[in-house]
Simulated assay, not measured.
Amino acid sequence: MFDIRQISIGSEPEGKSRVDVAEAVKPTTVAALPGIEVYQIWGTDSTPVVGPGEQDVSFAPYFPEPGGIRFLLLTMPPENAPAPEVTVDPAEAAAEAERVFPGVLAALQPDEFGRHRTDTVDVNLILDGELWLELDDGTETRLTPGYCVVQRGANHAWHNRSGRPVLMASVLIGAGRSA
Rank of each mutant, 00 (worst) to 15 (best):
G103R: 08
H159I: 10
H116E: 13
P145V: 02
A94G: 09
L131E: 04
F113K: 14
N155M: 15
D137T: 08
L135N: 03
L172F: 15
M76G: 07
S162R: 03
S170M: 15
I126W: 01
A94V: 13
N155E: 14
T87P: 01
V149L: 02
H156A: 04
P102N: 04
P77H: 14
A154Y: 07
R161T: 04
D119F: 11
T118L: 05
S170F: 07
L167E: 09
A83K: 12
P84T: 13
L167T: 09
M168P: 03
I173N: 05
P110V: 14
A175F: 08
D89N: 12
G103F: 06
H159S: 07
W158F: 14
V100W: 05
L167M: 10
A157D: 00
M168L: 10
E112R: 15
A175I: 03
N160S: 11
P165V: 05
N155V: 15
P78F: 10
D128K: 12
L127C: 04
W132Q: 10
P78R: 06
E92K: 15
C148T: 14
A93M: 03
R115H: 08
G129Y: 06
G146K: 08
R142H: 09
E96H: 06
P84A: 10
T144C: 01
T87W: 08
I126R: 00
R117K: 14
P165N: 09
A81E: 13
V86R: 15
R152E: 02
S162P: 00
D137S: 10
V123T: 11
T141H: 10
R161K: 12
A154L: 13
V88M: 15
I126E: 00
E85C: 09
R142L: 12
E140K: 13
H116N: 11
E96F: 08
M76W: 08
E85S: 14
A169M: 08
L127G: 03
A83R: 15
L135P: 00
E96S: 12
A157Q: 11
I173G: 00
L105K: 05
R142W: 07
G138Q: 02
A175G: 04
Q109W: 03
V100H: 06
T120P: 04
R99Q: 13
T118F: 04
L108Y: 13
R117S: 07
A106Y: 06
N160G: 04
L105Y: 05
P110W: 10
R177G: 03
G174V: 06
D111S: 08
G114N: 11
W132R: 14
N124H: 12
E140C: 06
V88P: 01
V86I: 15
I126H: 00
P145G: 01
